[in-house]
């Protein structure tokens, strides 16, 4: 069983829901990203999503676009992100999911990526722009490692596709809360709950909800119907606005963001 599956088993047995923060690797720089990731682990992150910066992030809103640009300007490469993961792994056991567009991984070569990522202790790969047959092929290649290809579902996904996607999904399913790009929103739309409910018909895998989640209220809402909440742009934005002390700023923000989890333990 993969480390991601283990983590959700543990959460379920403890009656807890998951908190999955996202940071762009290399923003503001690689060393600080490592510090932030370790801090997030200390603050109770259950899984950490590490963003691989890409020059053309078509699924991302302005916050993560700017973050990717800063990281690329610093010269961050996929190799650097994998090195960062390895340094993280020495100090923490928390599952790491790489969040990437396909081209950097395609360019490195999938098999090469698989062995390098496995050596770095990567547990999951989430590709924003890969679907269907291509996803199935990648999943097959990754099967020779303990890396899960995390599948995305969206409110526009038909039931027929949900069945297909769920049938080959590994680790957990990432439900995109609404049609749109990444970015903080005041409220989470009701489409997210509907989507999760529809997906439950086809799978017992844990489901995490992301896109637009930035407040404790939203996280609590998500925890009522899903297994985990993903917070990305809100954290990236804190890093952007606190260039002189990003680690402590993230610490303050996340400490106030994640609700007490005993509250949902009775479920």
């Amino acid at each position: 069983m993969s480390k991601i599956a283990d983590k959700f088993m543990q959460l379920r047995s403890e009656g807890r829901k998951g908190f999955i923060p996202f940071v762009t690797a290399g923003d503001p720089d690689l060393d600080t990203s490592l510090e932030i990731a370790l801090k997030l682990a200390d603050l109770g992150a259950d899984i950490i999503e590490l963003g691989v910066p890409f020059s053309d992030p078509m699924a991302d809103g302005p916050t993560i676009q700017r973050s990717s640009e800063r990281s690329i300007r610093n010269g961050t490469t996929l190799n650097d992100v994998l090195d960062l993961a390895r340094s993280f792994r020495v100090k923490s056991d928390i599952p790491l999911v790489l969040f990437s567009y396909f081209n950097p991984i395609h360019h490195l070569g999938l098999k090469e990526f698989r062995s390098m990522a496995a050596r770095s202790g990567i547990d999951g790969l989430l590709l924003t722009d890969v679907i269907e047959n291509e996803a199935a092929k990648i999943s097959e290649v990754l099967e020779e490692s303990s890396i899960d290809l995390i599948s995305l579902i969206a409110p526009t996904t038909t039931d027929e596709r949900l069945r297909d996607i769920c049938s080959r999904a590994k680790g957990f399913i990432y439900a995109v809360s609404r049609a749109g790009v990444t970015g903080a929103r005041e409220s989470t739309s009701s489409t997210a709950k509907q989507l999760v409910d529809r997906a439950r018909k086809f799978t017992d895998l844990p489901i995490g909800v992301g896109f637009g989640i930035s407040t404790p209220t939203q996280i609590e809402e998500v925890w009522q119907y899903a297994d985990a909440a993903v917070v990305g742009s809100a954290i990236v934005s804190v890093i952007e606005m606190n260039a002189s002390n990003p680690v402590s700023a993230v610490e303050t923000f996340v400490a106030g963001l994640v609700p007490e989890r005993q509250a949902t333990a009775a479920e």
Binding site: T128, V130, T157, G180
Partner: peptide, 12 residues
């Protein structure tokens, strides 16, 4: 060729 897009765009 093919389709390399976010899941949201598959239906449209």
């Amino acid at each position: 060729g093919g389709r390399f897009v976010p899941e949201t765009l598959v239906a449209p």
